[in-house]
């Protein structure tokens, strides 16, 4: 029976590949320039944070996790030392 199954009723795999690619690429094409979006977000966040606290370009990490019902934008900014919570209007 297994052999029979293997020879005669094995579903072809190409339609699977085709369908998966179509779904995946329609997603990925929506965020064409996705890199640019993340890069601009990073610049904006860096500018906003750096206005108050000194921080480096390399320490700002922006990740976008794309999902069907909702996507998550994750922002991580490393700041050297202990941040004082008193607003420091140095400038």
């Amino acid at each position: 029976m297994t052999l029979w199954k293997k020879w005669f009723s094995s579903a072809s795999s190409a339609p699977q590949a085709r369908e998966r690619l179509q779904i995946l690429l329609s997603h990925e094409r929506q965020v064409v320039g996705g890199d640019d979006l993340l890069a601009s977000l990073r610049e904006d966040i860096l500018a906003a944070v750096a206005k108050r606290v000194p921080c480096d370009r390399d320490t700002v990490k922006v990740r976008l996790e794309r999902g069907a019902p909702l996507s998550i934008l994750e922002i991580e900014v490393e700041i050297r030392g202990n941040v004082e919570l008193v607003l420091n209007q140095a400038a």
Partner: peptide, 16 residues
């Protein structure tokens, strides 16, 4: 293999 349905056909790749 493409004819057997186990490899993407030319038309599939072109369409995608």
């Amino acid at each position: 293999r493409a004819a057997r349905g186990d490899m993407l056909k030319t038309e599939d790749v072109l369409e995608i």
